[in-house]
Amino acid sequence: MSAPTFIPFTRPNFNQETIDAVAEVLRSGWVTSGPKLAEFESTLSEYFGGRPVRCFANGTATMKIALQVAGIGPGDEVITTPISWVATSNVILGVGAKPVFVDIDPITRNIDLNKVANAITPKTRAIMPVYLAGLPVDMDRLYAIANQYKLRVIEDAAQAFGSQWQGKRIGSIGDLVSFSFQANKNLSTVEGGCLVLNNEAEAKLAEKLRLQGLTRQGMDGMDVDVLGGKDNLTDVNAVIGLEQLKQLPSYQTRRAALARQYFDLIRTELKSAGLEDLNLELPVESFTDTNWHMFQVVLPLDQITIDRAQVMMELKDLGIGTGVHYPAITGFTLYKDQGYKTSDTPIAERIGRSILTLPLFPAMTDEDIGRIAKGLVGILKKYRKN
């Protein structure tokens, strides 16, 4: 019997129209930042209700430049979460500021807003929440805290393109909002990202910061008045984004349908296996706010005899790919060497040690979800402690 088809934890989807659009840009002779980038930024601005938008080479650059636009630098503190891709805190260090990690809510797995006020000091300049797997924090509470303490908010919405808060798109409200368009995101330009800003002055500064601080002065002159980098998005990437935007509604619908299947089938398999008392933690069952960028479970490691890595290997043997998003940042050597300890954020430490990302992408079938649910529960039953 042949092995079952392997299901990766994610797979980008680029249709023939996208391929044709890229080929057209390549034939045009203008492949770096040009007319397609301008069109993409304009289209994104419309998507976000007319707010200024600038695109960048990756989602890390968007956060770095957001911090610079907000005036964050040496001696400042930025409150954030320890459960994120390490870029979130690396960019804070990169501008000379200090990340201050606040523990997470065990249900949403986002920063616990109840604990933010206790972390604020006279050096605190901003809050950088992360919307894990596309689920936003309580935006009303977030901005109430920020307004009370006169803090900037830089939303790490890398995974939240298409998510909402009370019917409003993430990015259409708020302060500085950063998105990633990396290959595994709901909307992908292969690599890239965008920053939603508050006004044209911030947008102009972001433009300069992404291209060596350059200011053009007419046809024959230029000047540099700030220290910038090389973070511009190309027209090749931009045209992919334009085509992806056309497909986004169908992608979102399919992701939500797959997530519903996960909830139903995992619960069915647990009941069938007699494991209803097993503490397998599922994500927040929201079909209004989140974009279902990822479907993550928290394994009941205290109720089974193997660790997460062994669970992942068992699933791989069944033809199922998985991911880890994310271990606690405070456990990385770079951060331990600066005095951070995972014990300071115990919920994040537990979640970071136990969280498992299951496959979720629009091209998956209902049968794929059935295989995954059956495989995962079968492993949990096999290694259940007596």
Score class of each variant (00 low, 15 high):
residue 225 D to A: 03
residue 18 T to S: 13
residue 336 K to F: 05
residue 34 G to V: 03
residue 292 W to D: 04
residue 212 Q to P: 01
residue 87 A to M: 13
residue 229 G to I: 01
residue 315 L to T: 09
residue 323 G to H: 04
residue 166 Q to H: 12
residue 233 L to H: 01
residue 244 Q to K: 06
residue 213 G to P: 07
residue 369 I to V: 15
residue 379 I to A: 09
residue 296 Q to V: 09
residue 30 W to S: 15
residue 112 D to N: 15
residue 121 T to H: 05
residue 130 V to A: 11
residue 212 Q to I: 09
residue 193 G to Y: 03
residue 28 S to V: 15
residue 239 V to T: 15
residue 208 K to A: 10
residue 320 I to Q: 02
residue 58 N to V: 07
residue 41 E to D: 07
residue 44 L to W: 04
residue 104 I to W: 00
residue 120 I to M: 04
residue 199 N to D: 15
residue 245 L to T: 09
residue 156 D to V: 08
residue 62 T to D: 00
residue 115 K to M: 14
residue 43 T to V: 13
residue 374 K to L: 06
residue 247 Q to S: 12
residue 177 V to F: 02
residue 117 A to E: 15
residue 42 S to L: 12
residue 359 P to R: 00
residue 258 L to A: 08
residue 285 E to M: 09
residue 291 N to I: 06
residue 284 V to C: 08
residue 39 E to C: 09
residue 238 A to C: 06
residue 356 L to I: 08
residue 5 T to E: 14
residue 329 I to T: 15
residue 367 E to Y: 02
residue 196 V to C: 08
residue 262 Y to Q: 04
residue 81 T to F: 02
residue 147 N to A: 12
residue 256 A to L: 10
residue 63 M to G: 11
residue 190 V to S: 09
residue 263 F to C: 07
residue 324 V to A: 01
residue 183 A to Y: 07
residue 278 L to T: 01
residue 325 H to R: 10
residue 149 Y to M: 08
residue 45 S to E: 01
residue 79 I to F: 06
residue 213 G to D: 01
residue 104 I to K: 07
residue 357 T to P: 03
residue 352 G to P: 11
residue 308 R to Q: 12
residue 110 N to E: 11
residue 180 S to K: 04
residue 304 I to V: 15
residue 9 F to C: 07
residue 106 P to N: 02
residue 9 F to S: 07
residue 337 D to E: 15
residue 340 Y to W: 08
residue 329 I to A: 13
residue 225 D to G: 05
residue 217 Q to Y: 01
residue 301 L to G: 10
residue 232 N to M: 13
residue 138 D to M: 07
residue 39 E to S: 11
residue 180 S to P: 02
residue 130 V to L: 11
residue 164 Q to Y: 09
residue 195 L to A: 02
residue 133 A to I: 05
residue 151 L to A: 08
residue 253 T to N: 09
residue 383 Y to L: 11
residue 245 L to N: 05
residue 303 Q to W: 02
residue 193 G to C: 02
residue 48 F to P: 00
residue 224 V to T: 05
residue 293 H to A: 10
residue 4 P to S: 12
residue 108 T to Y: 00
residue 58 N to E: 06
residue 110 N to K: 10
residue 299 L to A: 09
residue 334 L to M: 13
residue 275 L to S: 00
residue 113 L to P: 06
residue 11 R to Y: 10
residue 197 L to V: 05
residue 369 I to M: 03
residue 274 G to C: 04
residue 159 Q to R: 13
residue 77 E to D: 13
residue 111 I to D: 01
residue 273 A to Q: 05
residue 232 N to W: 06
residue 311 V to Q: 01
residue 41 E to N: 11
residue 38 A to R: 15
residue 357 T to M: 08
residue 276 E to M: 07
residue 193 G to K: 00
residue 314 E to R: 13
residue 205 L to T: 02
residue 117 A to K: 13
residue 190 V to G: 08
residue 77 E to F: 03
residue 194 C to P: 00
residue 130 V to F: 05
residue 142 L to E: 06
residue 261 Q to D: 10
residue 143 Y to R: 10
residue 139 M to K: 13
residue 383 Y to D: 10
residue 219 M to S: 13
residue 43 T to M: 03
residue 174 G to M: 08
residue 290 T to S: 15
residue 12 P to W: 00
residue 191 E to N: 14
residue 342 T to P: 14
residue 344 D to I: 09
residue 336 K to R: 15
residue 336 K to S: 14
residue 182 Q to W: 04
residue 314 E to N: 11
residue 256 A to N: 09
